[in-house]
Write a protein that binds this DNA or RNA. Structure first.
Lengths: 340, 340
DNA sequence: TTGTAAGCGTTATCAT
DNA sequence: ATGATAACGCTTACAA
């Protein structure tokens, strides 16, 4: 592998001049530039990023950390993050924490060691402390949170309006004439889930519903026991007539139980999910869901990071952006059209 | 940020000894080791990977490149790759080519500049040449292909048995009594698609079907025109009575058209997909599909890379592994059970 | 406009 | 078992 020294030797120029050529410095003649580039081509020269990063402290690389890469919201957000940052000349590295705080810590440590210039992260379910995030900001590496936030610290944050989304979905179910609405609630320590639960409960109260405690039932779509419990509830005599799920996957699980039990949707039980995953419109019945513009989330997160990178010094003021949502009504909750 | 020099100063030891401690050298007293580790803790010392990588030429990092991170096959394969490689002490970087050869080239170039120790890659749809792959092997960076391969070059390769999968799926449709079976064929330049098409056609011929050319129709589930054409075909008088799709997404598109046209599945048209995505069993009717163990693909790819890394020199002999598939029969193609 | 030379934080090869 | 020192390939004052 040829290096700059080789180019210097071959061209008879100095190391500094070679370096200047590759850094687009104005301080080189057009002619020398050509000479260097030609030599580079013939020697198949490739710059060594690690050496540059070591010396300059900048790697031109951004780390994106998500709990899992499989969810629509992350797939879409990552894509728009990639578009914006690569246009700005950055390379993007994707890592997944698999919802583990320990892994999240290890990843951030690794990213720091790789001297990434910035990090865009959606926190794991387990993350309730932020030492590992502050380690980065202490090392002058800007951090932007998206989708899942945390009330601690002082980070630029981009989230969607989970509260209003849940509120609107619940109101919609009430307007459909549903009387006994339950919420499959996610882990309350995760911001998106607690906000959705609060939005759900607020809507019920505003419409004069008594808030008996079982309206919100804890539900993890990954836990077979929770699924079994839901099944029992739906088989029982006084089953709910509407389900607002903490996410589309949970809604999907509910739909399958309902189909298994031969309970018709939406006539007997209406269902609304959250996230508007692509599969929503492919299901039968198609699934109503709260739509978030993950593309927009990614875009704002990326530009927000670029802002921080531009403003050099870690600004004391952090920006909190909350993006609007939209309720997508489909077959699974449309009783009125159904009745027509 | 404290560095080794600081530790040397604080402990009164030499740089070399400090380095030995962190590299687990046997040549240090237990006592000095403790002294160093304690100093490291109190100074919050973190090793600098880039410096180590620059000096040693090894970064302890593996790059995983996929066309997109959204597909089940990649999500699952990446997960098992991560498990195995992180157990072996490597960090994993995920990059997506978005099915673009140009992006794929840029990514590999970046990975090389980052001195990754190895690359596991599934090629983009556009990749029909391998210069950029050979650039890596020329730089002594081992490359392992998975899922999508290429007939050029001499790389360790792990794929599933697409031919047999397609053959078995087609035979299954024939056994269900289907007479006019079509195949929604993917881009023939992509290995998995051409193999599936060949398996399909071979099965038809073996069962005495005349191979009229329209049996395999080119179909890109991303192209609205292809979707429109399929819709017209299914609305026409002599529509097929079975569809074998190049992938589950294509099958999903077909199912939706059929549902829209009120054509019953599987009675009037049977459908089989490929990939056994999780959503297959959630659909209504549930979708029959050829199941690939993406977990196994990832596992074999990762261990294969570890082998190459261990055997130092780039072995001239490359290993080609083909993993078995399984046909998952579900409602969308089960006419016999349906009739019972 | 170009050159000189001192690092960046490690690792590795000698000695001791 | 520990130390001194030269790399690794690049950037960046400072000099010329």
């Amino acid at each position: 592998m040829a290096n700059m020294k080789d180019l210097a030797r071959v061209t008879g120029l100095s190391l500094a001049t070679i370096s200047r050529v590759f850094n687009g410095s104005e301080l080189v003649t057009e002619k020398t530039r050509e000479i260097v580039l030609e030599a580079a081509k013939s020697l198949n020269y490739r710059p060594n990023k690690m050496a540059a990063a070591l010396r300059s402290g900048k790697s031109n690389t951004i780390g994106v950390v998500v709990p899992v890469i499989s969810r629509d919201v992350f797939v879409v957000a990552i894509k728009s993050i990639e578009e914006i940052l690569s246009k700005a000349g950055y390379n993007i590295i994707i890592c997944q924490s698999h919802e583990s705080l320990e892994k999240e810590k290890a990843i951030l440590e690794n990213l720091r060691q790789l001297s990434v210039d910035g990090v865009i992260i959606s926190l794991s379910k387990e993350t309730t402390q932020i030492d590992h995030l502050q380690n980065l900001t202490a090392a002058e590496i800007p951090v932007v949170l998206f989708d899942r936030k945390i009330e601690l610290g002082n980070f630029n944050t981009i989230v969607i309006d989970n509260y209003t989304g849940a509120h609107r979905a619940t109101t919609h179910l009430i307007e459909q004439g549903c009387k006994r609405i339950i919420h499959l609630a996610g882990k309350d320590s995760v911001s998106i889930f607690s906000e959705r639960r609060r939005g759900f409960e607020a809507a019920l109260i505003e419409h004069g519903f008594a808030m008996d405690t079982e309206r919100s039932i804890p539900f993890d779509d990954d836990d077979p026991r929770d699924i079994q419990q839901l099944k029992e509830m739906l088989s029982s005599g006084n089953r709910p007539d509407a389900i607002f799920a903490n996410g589309d996957i949970a809604a999907l699980v509910a739909l399958n139980i309902l189909s298994e039990l031969n309970i018709s949707v939406p006539t007997e039980v209406a269902v609304v999910g959250f996230g508007n995953n692509v599969f929503c419109s492919y299901l039968n019945p198609s699934l109503s869901s709260v739509s978030q513009s993950s593309e927009e989330v990614g875009k704002v997160a990326a530009t927000s990071l670029l802002d921080e990178l531009a403003s050099a010094s870690s600004t004391a003021t952090s920006v909190q952006r909350v993006l609007p949502i939209k309720l997508m009504v489909r077959q699974s909750s449309n009783k009125i059209k159904q009745a027509q």
